[in-house]
Design a binder for these strands. Structure first.
Lengths: 126, 126
DNA sequence: CGGGATCCTAGTGGATACTG
DNA sequence: CAGTATCCACTAGGATCCCG
């Protein structure tokens, strides 16, 4: 498993040191619509390999972004779900989509229910 | 100079293929408050090296995220500024800051004028 | 099905010295 | 000042095969 140490106390640099690698945010995208299994990630169009997927999921679990549930079945089954901390990154993903749809015309427009979705703890200030 | 080809037509994956490396968003952070010179980036706490900085700035210029202005002086002087396309990523940086300040307590709180700043073309729909 | 074990590449980053 | 030019190290990421 591979994680990065924060380079500074800057919120942007620190966040990027956690989720700013080549795959973490793509995995989170797959998890927005709910739980997913190992083989379902592999089916995404970006074609992540088993090796990297294992590595990223383990790091994300340790960082508290996802939870891995195991079921006692035959053959064994696992499911990955976003934690609240992970879900709270949804606005970032939505902003990225808006930006891409404006400046990179060859990208899909995400489904409406994704762009309208709201995460639980908006801003608890005051 | 190093750029990545998009892995898919997904807006998230495509955007990450452009700005999702270890340095691009950190450089953009430095540019939010206005123009910067080469040596000013080097002074940031994350300690980027000249080699990597040159590489990233060139890629960002080719991607239309920054403009490099040169002045005919002695010694020669250059300035880097965000384009409108680059500035439009500001909401992403702000969301990242909000997220970090909530879930990664050891990070700074950015100055208020940064979090309140708005980019020109909000959403021109309807 | 959900990985682990291996081995390998190439992208990323770093140190140092030099130049227009 | 603002880079180039080398050379080098590390590791994220990939290919392939194997296993409980």
């Amino acid at each position: 498993m591979t994680r990065r140490e924060p380079r500074s106390a800057c919120p942007i640099a620190t966040t990027l040191d956690m989720v700013g690698d080549r795959w973490t945010m793509v995995i989170m995208r797959d998890l927005i619509c709910g739980k997913k299994r190992f083989s379902q990630f592999l089916a995404s169009p970006e074609r992540i390999t088993t090796n990297v997927l294992t590595d990223r999921l383990a790091a994300m679990e340790e960082d508290g972004l996802v939870i891995r549930r195991s079921y006692q079945e035959r053959p064994k089954r696992y499911e990955y779900v976003l934690t609240e901390k992970g879900e709270a990154l949804l606005p970032v993903l939505q902003d990225i989509c808006r930006w891409a749809n404006r400046y990179m015309p060859d990208t899909w427009t995400p489904p409406d229910h994704f762009m309208r979705k709201r995460t639980g703890g908006g801003d608890a200030s005051s």
